[in-house]
């Protein structure tokens, strides 16, 4: 394990809101992370602080082992184009790319040219006259062609149609295969990116509530459908995150998996087990929390989720997390 980013007890307080509440996590080198969560959960704030575009209220950030703030050595290896990025008034996409070429040492002009073609981006129109999709394309092209060792994409698909989004996903994967690097992608379109991302960081209300590999995340919950009474017997004592019913039929999603014997019993009862998509899981988890219902604070005891204070590194590899925490304290 080689972490390029380490975050400890990071807190960001705005005048009237706590955007990040003592979060801790590590970002491993050469992996694609999905930074997921609702609007206002703290995704953009986290990315801004990691790239020193914003400053934390308290806590620590290390990128390549150093504090990124006012640190050209670290910053020149990162790229973060905001979702609401502002450009100089007279600037055209051509100017923006020319500037990016000056400042990103691993900039690939060939890749930029191909992407400009792919997105059919008009190069000579001033950026303030571009459509929302074209504006997003400028950011996406800078992010991809910078080939920065750590690249952030903050909801890069806004205004892009389905075809353009697919181009982005395909290009990202292809170039990632060619030049492996660390990518943090924040997104609401969880289903669309779920095949792309290798790890999931779920942030809700300023806290990390999930830090898992995408595969492990998908296995966190199970859905069982069938006769309401039989379903209730199965989920009795389990942490239910979603429940819906239609007459005598119920569909319940709960955290955790069933072992072989349990599965056989469920099937014998005439119930159906269905996988839970990443998007469903995340919607259920974050919906749950924001509704303020009890028992929804992170995960049950069978998962190594964060404790309620959110100060521990919520890594699945507990032994590693322990040693890390030990050395950090």
């Amino acid at each position: 394990m080689n972490s390029v980013i380490q975050v400890r007890n990071l807190t960001k307080r705005y005048k009237d809101a706590l955007a990040l509440d003592g979060v801790s996590f590590d970002i491993e080198q050469d992996a694609i992370y999905g930074l997921l969560g609702r609007n206002g959960a703290g995704k953009t704030t986290a990315m801004s602080i990691l790239t020193a575009q914003n400053l934390p209220t308290s806590g620590e950030v290390r990128v390549f082992g150093e504090n990124p703030y006012e640190n050209a050595r670290v910053l020149s290896r990162m790229c973060f184009v905001r979702e609401s990025q502002k450009y100089p008034d007279d600037a055209t996409p051509r100017h923006a790319f020319a500037a990016a070429r000056l400042f990103f040492p691993r900039w690939d002009q060939g890749l930029a040219d191909e992407l400009i073609d792919d997105f059919q981006l008009p190069l000579k129109r001033t950026i303030k006259k571009l459509s929302r999709g074209q504006l997003s394309a400028v950011g996406v092209i800078i992010g991809l062609a910078s080939r920065a060792e750590v690249t952030f994409f903050d909801e890069p698909y806004l205004g892009l149609d389905a075809v353009a989004r697919q181009i982005f996903y395909d290009r990202l994967l292809a170039d990632y295969a060619e030049v492996p690097r660390t990518i943090l992608l924040s997104s609401h379109l969880i289903d669309e990116v779920s095949n792309l991302i290798e790890r999931v960081l779920l942030i809700d209300d300023g806290r990390i509530i999930m830090d898992e590999s995408a595969d492990d995340a998908r296995a966190l919950a199970t859905n069982v459908v069938g006769d309401a009474a039989a379903v209730e017997r199965v989920v009795n004592g389990r942490e239910v995150i979603h429940r819906e019913g239609l007459g005598r039929v119920a569909s319940v999603t709960f955290l955790g998996r069933l072992d072989g014997a349990e599965r056989a019993a469920v099937v014998a009862d005439g119930l159906e087990l269905a996988p839970v998509s990443l998007q469903q899981l995340i919607v259920r988890l974050t919906q749950h929390r924001s509704a303020g219902r009890p028992g929804a604070d992170g995960f049950g005891s069978n998962n190594s989720g964060p404790d309620s204070s959110g100060t521990k590194s919520p890594s699945t590899d507990t032994s590693d997390a322990d040693t890390q925490e030990g050395s950090l304290r």
């Binding site: 082992g65 050595r73 020149s76």
Partner: peptide, 18 residues
């Protein structure tokens, strides 16, 4: 308060002329 060790920083050149 946990602190992070910064000793392991790799020596990377700052690009010139920024």
């Amino acid at each position: 308060m946990t602190t992070l060790d910064s000793g392991a920083a790799l020596q990377h050149q700052v690009p010139r002329n920024r």
